[in-house]
Design a protein around this nucleic acid. Structure first.
Length: 475
RNA sequence: GUCCCCAUCGUCUAGCGGUUAGGACAUCACCCUUUCAAGGUGAAGACACGGGUUCGAUUCCCGUUGGGGAUGCCA
């Protein structure tokens, strides 16, 4: 039997990190088994489903490289099939109409809470004669769940989970307005789509029991379940804003690479021995349900940063220029061909120091910054009168270096420092400040070689004559 | 309240009855060094607790505690 899985987000908000991981696991599972990975938009809640949310989900999945193998299924478009399924259940006596109003149900729950009883529908209309139905109330349709015994869910992650059927009340299949609920739609669609494995968040584990009963009522055995633990924030509580509960678009904005996100997310809840850096190809080869852990994980930006730094180093220099260009342009830099070429040359030195594309853009800016270079506070402090005078003396020495390349520049600068009776460090930091406007940068001679003789001399002259403005902001 | 799930370094995790409890991130030293990274070496750091089962429990069972989830005419 070929594997068919699905990711089934509801378009009521952005695609968050937990959803992204669920999608990844499904996608990897399908790839590993040569099966199909489908996307189903669970938009049966007409009130809360929105177009922008759908767009955000599609966009996020696309960015992560988790496109589905077939066009997405919009659940609401299958409403007729859902209704037909309910009709069959009604005819078979496996479902019934219930005329309780939302207010009555709320009162029922209140009472149960007050009396510290389990909070669930009491089955009022299960046996009651429909002829007693109150006028002017549109009924919902409820599933006739088993009253006793237990429902057993064999979960590939959580093991055997048993639910007493007294815990499972008669869930609503069709709302009073005739639209299907999630409980019904998932099952009908999973059957229709031929889903073989359901990999989803732990928060659905309870539902799995209800789903299993519905599957059987509809004449099918449930698929294989695998409920993966949820992702928590750094404090162990629910994921909250600023702590990872961001849309995946936010991660893109923060400068993370999709391959880094995939790797990090994969390791959140899944392991293959001690492996940490796992390429997508390798992940496909290795991914299995057995590797999924049962305990929830906390989201950790520090680890994500480190994984991202790794993948940044692996990216081709020209790709990084393209990735960083919009950020530099947004910061007000003009990027023509010469600038792009210079950045590409500089990339090997820059990328090994960056953890995110934000870092990378920030550290790359000085290469294409128009003169005179703004100085950050520390750099400005370094360029005191003595240092400026020293740079003025150094300039002609550097000007004479031929060719204007790393080795010769370094030899000349070191020789100069020695002649002046300076430690090289004493010369290097002011030089760095003059050339980059900062106290931190790639190697000085690499920077010089990339900037070129003319630009280096102009920047030195700016510094020597105190022409540089103070930097407005840190980046 | 009721039901369900979970529990190894700060974090992600390996472990699947007998290990000096391993790795990664973060942290701290030291090395390298023109700064910062990177890299190298090293350090510190965990089996929540209590009962069983067993010759032997991190590992199996039960309980406690602590987290989390569900309890919607949301998904």
């Amino acid at each position: 039997m070929s594997v068919i899985v699905r990711f089934a987000p509801s378009p009521t908000g952005y695609l968050h990190i937990g959803g992204a991981r669920t999608a990844l696991f499904n996608w990897l599972f399908a790839r590993h088994h040569g099966g199909r990975y489908l996307l189903r938009i669970e938009d049966t809640d007409r009130q809360r489903s929105t177009e922008p949310a759908i767009a955000a989900i599609l966009d996020g999945l696309g960015w992560l490289g988790l496109e589905s193998d077939e066009p997405p299924v919009y659940q609401f478009s299958r409403i007729e099939q859902h209704k037909a399924a309910v009709q069959r259940l009604l005819e078979q006596g496996l479902a019934y109409r219930c005329w309780c109003t939302p207010e009555e149900l709320e009162a029922m729950r209140e009472r149960a809470r007050a009396e510290k009883r389990p909070i669930r529908y009491d089955g009022t209309w299960r046996e009651r004669d429909p002829r007693e139905a109150p006028a002017g109330v549109d009924p919902v349709v409820r599933f006739k769940a088993p009253l006793d015994g237990e429902t057993v869910v064999e979960d590939r992650v959580q093991g055997t989970v048993r639910f007493a059927n007294t815990q499972l009340d008669d869930m609503i299949l069709l709302r009073a307005d005739g639209t299907p609920t999630y409980m019904l739609s998932v099952v009908v669609d999973d059957i229709e789509m031929g889903i073989t494995h359901i990999i989803r968040g732990d928060d659905h584990l309870n539902n799995a029991a209800r789903h299993a009963n519905l599957f059987r009522a509809l004449g099918h055995e449930p698929p294989v379940f695998a409920h993966i633990p949820l992702i928590h924030g750094p404090d162990g509580a629910k994921l909250s804003k600023r702590h990872g509960a961001l849309g995946v678009d936010a991660y893109r904005e923060l400068g993370y690479l999709p391959e880094a996100m995939r790797n990090y997310l994969l390791r959140l809840g899944w392991a293959h021995g001690d492996e940490e850096i796992i390429s997508t190809q390798q992940a496909i080869a290795w991914f299995d349900l057995d590797g999924i852990g049962r305990s929830p994980a906390r989201f950790d930006f520090a680890k994500l940063d480190s994984v991202n730094a790794h993948y940044l180093k692996e990216r081709a220099d020209n790709e990084l220029v393209t990735l960083v260009a919009p950020r530099l342009e947004a910061a007000g830099h003009r990027l023509g061909e010469p600038e792009r070429r210079r950045l590409e040359q500089a990339m090997p030195g820059l990328k090994q120091r960056a953890r995110t594309l934000v870092d990378l853009a920030s550290s790359a800016a000085f290469y294409i910054q128009a003169r005179p270079l703004p100085l950050d506070a520390k750099a400005a402090k370094l360029l005191d009168p003595a240092a400026r005078a020293e740079l003025a003396r150094l300039a002609p020495v550097l000007a004479a270096v031929e060719p204007f390349a790393e080795a010769g520049l370094e030899a000349a600068a070191r020789a100069h420092a020695e002649r002046q009776g300076l430690g090289f460090g004493k010369l290097a930091q002011p030089l760095r400040a003059a050339l980059t406007g900062r106290t931190v940068s790639p190697g000085l001679f690499e920077v010089m070689a990339i900037l070129g003789r003319e630009e280096v001399l102009l920047r030195l002259e700016d510094a020597a004559t105190g022409r540089n403005p103070a930097m407005q902001q840190s980046d």
